[in-house]
Design a protein around this nucleic acid. Structure first.
Lengths: 212, 212
DNA sequence: TAAGAAATTATTCAAGCGTATAATAGACCA
DNA sequence: TGGTCTATTATACGCTTGAATAATTTCTTA
């Protein structure tokens, strides 16, 4: 009865593969389907290996959540260019692939549902949330200032709350029922709504990207 | 070895108690913690009884989700009064207790994370979502019409998408991090933002409720 | 090329899971 | 009040779970 052959992988790579497999399991079968054995199968290893890299199942879930949050926020937080471009790109990125799709939502909701159970997950969540909102708030402040509009801290705070809510909500709608909306309908709604909220026009996406 | 005593409950009451216990378990320990045995303990019965009332665990979860959705939407969909009052109450209800709290979010997220796994849950979800958005769209149409503003179907659709997103997003923010906001800050942000989006003022909440 | 380190597999364990079935007792009606 | 129905308890079964440990194989390096 021959043992299966295997190859030894660098620690970082193996850990990453295991985390990726965990996310695949959660997206496909839900948190309940992300068992140690299923994750191992998906990663092409045996179950015991998971415990060699992660102290417990809780720990691999925490690492997996970190990766989910990073993927949801990293692109939007690295926008470049003038204030208007940065703001507009931020909006578009958050409402299009790969941030907005049903897999993202499945993963996000799975972890959110555990935030109230696992304090460590709650900490990871809070960090990601604050970082996202601060990024948005400074984008708004820069944009308003560049246009010579009122950019007082109070106004920026209120606007950040509203725009953050709008983006979160539209992201949710798009992920949950994307087929109910036209091609780029949600992005259009977001851009025109935010223009209205800020009281300032944003150049249309086409003209703007043609500039670059 | 004496058996434990018990009392026979009417079917409707017992079913309701079991569903309520299910929600308690999910809110406290997450979906994973909502085991047949835990639910039974929470309901003060033994595990076998659950199968007497529900065909399987899947079925009790589906019923539980129906209740969650009903509680999230029923109050807001029953607003009365003139168009402005209805719209404003709709907004306020969705962003205050008991709709907006961390328990609601835990339950909602738990089920949303299973929507992609269980088609029956997906159907329940879709029904609730469409009903909510239609209610909002007609509230907006009535309000715009009453004020003599443009209430064309296209405009109402776009506005409903935006306002729905805004409400969902603010609800999310409030549930997830309520302590980051002032007493009624989210409601204020929602009301002023929606005023801006519609291009029409809403009387403040105080003056309005004093009218009734 | 031989040896040692450790990454990986294989196996085992106790606990908990959803479900099935049999025994019991509460409640209603004759 | 006694008999009957069935809601409820009690117990058991087979599986799966996360975890622990022992056995191997791969890879490095001297």
């Amino acid at each position: 009865m021959a043992r299966r052959t295997f190859h030894r992988a660098p620690e970082a790579e193996r850990r990453h593969d295991l985390i990726e497999a965990t996310l695949d399991c959660i997206a496909e079968y839900g948190l309940q389907g992300a068992t140690v054995r299923q994750i191992a199968i998906k990663a092409g290893v045996t179950a015991g290996l998971i415990r060699h890299y992660f102290q417990s199942k809780e720990h691999i879930l925490q690492e997996a959540y970190r990766l989910v949050i990073a993927r949801l926020t990293e692109k939007a937080e690295r926008v470049t260019g003038d204030p208007e471009t940065r703001l507009r790109d931020f909006i578009v990125i958050n409402l299009t692939e790969p941030v907005a799709n049903s897999r993202s939502l499945s993963l996000w909701a799975s972890f959110i549902s555990r935030v109230s159970v696992d304090p460590e997950l709650a900490a990871i969540h809070r960090e990601g949330y604050l970082s996202f909102r601060n990024a948005l708030e400074s984008l708004l402040a820069d944009f308003l200032a560049a246009r010579g509009a009122d950019a007082s801290p109070e106004r920026c705070r209120k606007l950040a709350i509203a725009v953050n809510g709008l983006l979160d909500g539209l992201w949710l709608e798009g992920c949950l029922a994307g087929e109910l909306f036209g091609e780029s309908e949600l992005v259009e709604v977001a851009l025109t709504s935010i223009e209205t909220l800020l009281g300032l026009p944003l150049r249309p996406v086409d003209a703007a990207s043609a500039d670059r």
